[in-house]
Every structure is written in C-alpha cells, then in structure tokens.
Design a protein around this nucleic acid. Structure first.
Lengths: 155, 155
DNA sequence: ATCCTAAATAAGAATTTTTCTTCACTGAGA
DNA sequence: TCTCAGTGAAGAAAAATTCTTATTTAGGAT
C-alpha cells in the first residue's frame, strides 16, 4: 500500500511533467499501464483492469486518456498487425516480436541490435524525413518446449 | 487492355498457387492491391476503388478475401499505429516509415539495412522463437520543402 | 459439354471498436 | 475561496469488422 502511494506521487509528477492535469483517473490509468507492463493492452484491457476498484470510470475516459498520454509522449502506441490500438508504458527504445500463431506481441530488448541501428541511422540520411525513432519488428512463431507433441508409447 | 488481360492470367495463377479458388472477385481485389502499391490500403480503400467497375461486390467479401490472401501469404498486413487493418501486395522484405504528422505509412527500401539485419539475425539466436521475418519501423516527420512557412514581407 | 459439390459471394444484420456530445464536476492557480 | 479551462461519466453515434444465410460459382468428375 505504501509503495503504491509512493508510485502514485511519482506518476502524478510524470503526468504533470507531460503538461497534463494529474487527475485521479489519469493516475490510476497510468498505474494500470505499468501493471500491464509487457502486455501491450488495449483501452478495453485497461478498462477491465480498472473497473473493479474504480466502478465509476468510463471507457471513453480511458480511450481519451491513453491518447493524451501518447500525445504527451508519456507512453507509446504499439504497432499491431491485428488492427486494434495497443499501448505500452515502456518508452525505452525496444523491439517487438509478433507471434503469428498466438497473435501475441512480446518485448524484445537487444542492446547490440539497438547500437547497430543507432550507428546505421546516425550515418544514413533518410530523404525528406526527420527520423525520431526506430524499432525492429520481428515476426515468428513461439517455440514452446512444454507444448511439444510427444506420443507416449503404449506400455 | 491487353496488358490487363495478361496481368489477370498471372494473378489468377498466383491465387491458384496460393491454394485458393481464382474467382472473379479475388482477381479484381488482387488487381486493386497492385494498383494501390505503396498506399497500404484498408479494406474500405480497396472496396471504394473496386465499386465503380464492380457494383455488385460486397465489402464483406473484400474483408474476407484480404484475410485469405494474408493467410495464403500472397500479401501482407502492414503494421499500424492507427489501429486499422492495412494491406500490402509488396511481399519483398522492406521497411516502413510512419509519419506522425500525416499518419502516412511510406515504404522504405534500403538494401544495406536489409543486409545488416540479415547478417545480424543469421548469427543471433532469439530464444524460444523461430523468426520468420523482420523489418525496421521508422517513425518521423516528413520534411516537405513546399510546405515551409514563409512570411512574405510587406512591400 | 454437363453435372456435382465444396467453397465463395451478396446482402445486410450483428458485433466490436472508437469517437463524439452533453452536461456536471474538479484541480490548481489567482 | 473563487474561478474556469480542462476533465469525467454516460450514453449516443459512427466506424470498423465479423457473422449469417440463401444463392451462386469454380473446377473437378462424369
């Protein structure tokens, strides 16, 4: 409980620093995003997580708040093949792997890769564009050791 | 006209090779996708392009067909921050630049970058994943020389 | 060439996702 | 404390996507 309070003060400051009023709704929404770290939630996901403890919160507010946060660069939109809007409180430059089987989006952090691209784009000049960020999008299939098909021999 | 007929035969074969029945609707949808090369259209975009010449085509068919094409790997879904489903008939590995001002998605083809990543991922082993493809997503702002603000001095 | 059948389509209803509108309310500075 | 621009709730509205059903069609078999 006390740690949550501490976090809340921090979150509040973040929101203010982003140039937004630090309302209760915004604070709990930000909190939910941090709780869902690595899950790349939709507005609906955040809403569902919040509802039990905040029965009066409105889905419209969640949508609007998430977009305000993105505009204030407090969070990011996550690129999606599936067509929904997804958000990520992790603003540190990182990449994602999209699993075409499970439709999951998984964080992929690779310092070496980051450096490689950093170097590349510091030299490379992209015509007519002021590049602000880059990330690698990997597509693949999860190889789950536990989901291996194993036919147990009779006897 | 004759070239279109030629293309149609080719497209038809593509569709069959993808394991799908080559219906008229599928052929004209594929044709529309090629015409919209580099535009990363939505289902609605394709529908609007097709409707004048194919008044009986149904939007639902366009949605379903595009998904069938993706499943058959004839086309790709384009990653989007905006949350809509976008498609691309260009299956050659390439990257995209997202312009946060105009919300446009622009193709970025860079052989050197492709090679760099190819090399990187041929060595790098991503745990629990069988990587099938990769692409760089750039975010930035278009610098349009013609859109410069210039205040003409009085007199 | 004709027939047959599984697959595909049109049409529109239904569902899901997102945005918008209105009005009441509240955070934070004067 | 007072004020007010910004914010929230609620739900209507709009946009995007999927589903249902009866009808039609492609392509293989006859």
């Amino acid at each position: 409980m006390e740690q949550q309070s501490l976090n809340r003060a921090g979150l509040k400051q973040c929101i203010i620093d982003g140039g937004l009023k630090a309302t209760h709704q915004r604070i709990v929404i930000f909190e939910a995003l941090e709780a869902l770290h690595g899950h790349h939630p939709t507005a609906e996901d955040v809403f569902q997580l919040l509802k039990p403890a905040n029965p009066s919160i409105s889905l419209g507010t969640v949508y609007k708040t998430l977009d305000s946060f993105v505009e204030a660069a407090l969070i990011r939109r996550v690129l999606s093949e599936e067509g929904g809007k997804r958000y990520d409180a992790n603003t540190v430059s990182h990449s994602h792997i999209y699993c075409s089987n499970t439709k999951e989006i998984i964080d992929y952090e690779d310092a070496e890769l980051e450096q490689l691209l950093q170097d590349f784009f510091s030299k490379r000049n992209v015509e007519n564009f002021e590049i602000k960020s880059f990330a690698v999008q990997l597509t693949g299939n999860k190889v789950e050791p536990d989901k291996q098909i194993s036919i147990k021999p009779v006897n």
